[in-house]
């Protein structure tokens, strides 16, 4: 019984933890892209990267104030969306997919190159102590919770984690509200019509390119925000955190929860990290396989679950079955 509590408590702590928040935000961005507009962005991690590094570089390396750093992080996401959108949004969906996955990797390699070390920290990234107190100093100073450990039933937090979790879920709620308002408006209707058939939207007088660009920017900014939360949570960033699989985790989160649903990405993030973490703990407790293989094993397990979900509930947990049937 104790073991079960440990497993479930571990899962729950992960499910509401900073990583789940980061993926919820990234997946909400992808939902705007893919779920509502039909844009295949396979480089969401690139937006996360420029968000995190926009903050890190401007504050830690160039000494900008914290809030300016946040704005630069978000601005960098907008810039990346414009850069990717202009050449590709007039083309078929596949071109955006190819360009985004490539762009995210190109940016990562540029950031991590030794030549760029002076400006980006190179392969070592931006540790917390670079440029004095580091880019997260203001963030930690804003923390209203006194140092210490906080326990709420099964949930346990340090004061820094509690601060990230509260602000993080607050951001998720705010962003969800904005996306909900947008998607029930005529603006959201145009995005959905573009997802269904952009020529029909065009024939009815909608500037498809402009709407796709707006959607790409909005979802990209949400990706940038995810990167900023990631950076603040760790108080340090490294280039190799931003590998392509982060995008695919975010897609897994989105599809698990249900694309084109408002709460899908949030529930998806919660369930995804709950499963990953509790399976890990279960395997640890059961002691049936070597500890070193637990990491891959839990991913394989969640992968199998996703396959089963797709087979039996292709619309995701919260997706609309009626809509899904029409998808083929």
């Amino acid at each position: 019984m104790d073991a079960l509590v440990t497993i479930l408590a571990g899962g729950l702590n992960s499910a509401i933890g900073p990583t789940a928040i980061v993926f919820a935000l990234a997946a909400i961005g992808l939902n705007v892209h893919y779920g509502y507009t039909g844009l295949l962005n396979f480089g969401q991690v690139g937006f996360m990267l420029v968000g995190a590094y926009g903050l890190g570089i401007s504050v830690s390396i160039y000494g900008a104030p914290f809030w300016v750093g946040i704005l630069i992080g978000l601005g960098a996401s907008v810039a990346l969306a414009l850069l990717l959108g202009f050449p590709t949004l007039r083309l078929r969906a596949d071109y955006l997919a190819i360009s985004t996955i490539a762009a995210a990797e190109i940016i990562r390699f540029m950031i991590r190159s030794t030549g760029a070390r002076e400006f980006t920290g190179g392969p070592f990234g931006i540790p917390s102590n670079v440029g004095g107190p580091g880019f997260a100093q203001t963030w930690h100073q804003m923390n209203p919770f006194p140092s210490g450990r906080y326990t709420f039933g099964w949930l346990q937090f340090t004061h820094t984690r509690l601060w990230v979790v509260i602000v993080g879920w607050g951001l998720v709620a705010l962003v969800t509200l904005v996306v909900w308002l947008l998607m029930r408006s005529p603006w959201g209707r145009v995005l959905k019509s573009i997802r269904e058939d952009e020529d029909a939207a065009r024939a009815l007088g909608k500037n498809v390119f402009a709407y796709k660009m707006q959607a790409l920017i909005l979802g990209g900014v949400l990706g940038g925000l995810a990167g900023i939360v990631l950076a603040l949570n760790q108080a340090a960033i490294g280039p190799d955190q931003f590998l392509p699989q982060l995008t695919f985790f975010a897609y897994a989160v989105l599809i698990l929860g249900g694309a084109a649903s408002i709460f899908g990405p949030i529930l998806g993030a919660f369930v995804f990290w709950f499963l990953l973490s509790s399976v890990e703990r279960a395997l640890l407790t059961a002691d049936v396989i070597p500890t070193a293989t637990i990491g891959p094993a839990r991913l394989a397990f969640v992968g199998v679950l996703l396959v089963l979900l797709m087979a039996f509930r292709p619309q995701g947990i919260l997706g609309n079955k009626r809509e899904m049937v029409l998808d083929g």
């Binding site: 005529p186 959201g188 145009v190 959905k192 269904e196 024939a203 707006q214 809509e323």
Partner: peptide
């Protein structure tokens, strides 16, 4: 035919109206 399959009939229709204030990003909010 380009019926927008995952929009309701009513949404299909409303999409057709031009000059909608709510189709602008900020006003939509």
């Amino acid at each position: 035919t380009k019926a927008l399959t995952r929009l309701s009939v009513m949404e299909n229709m409303k999409l057709g109206a031009t000059g909608q204030a709510g189709e602008r990003f900020l006003r939509a909010l």
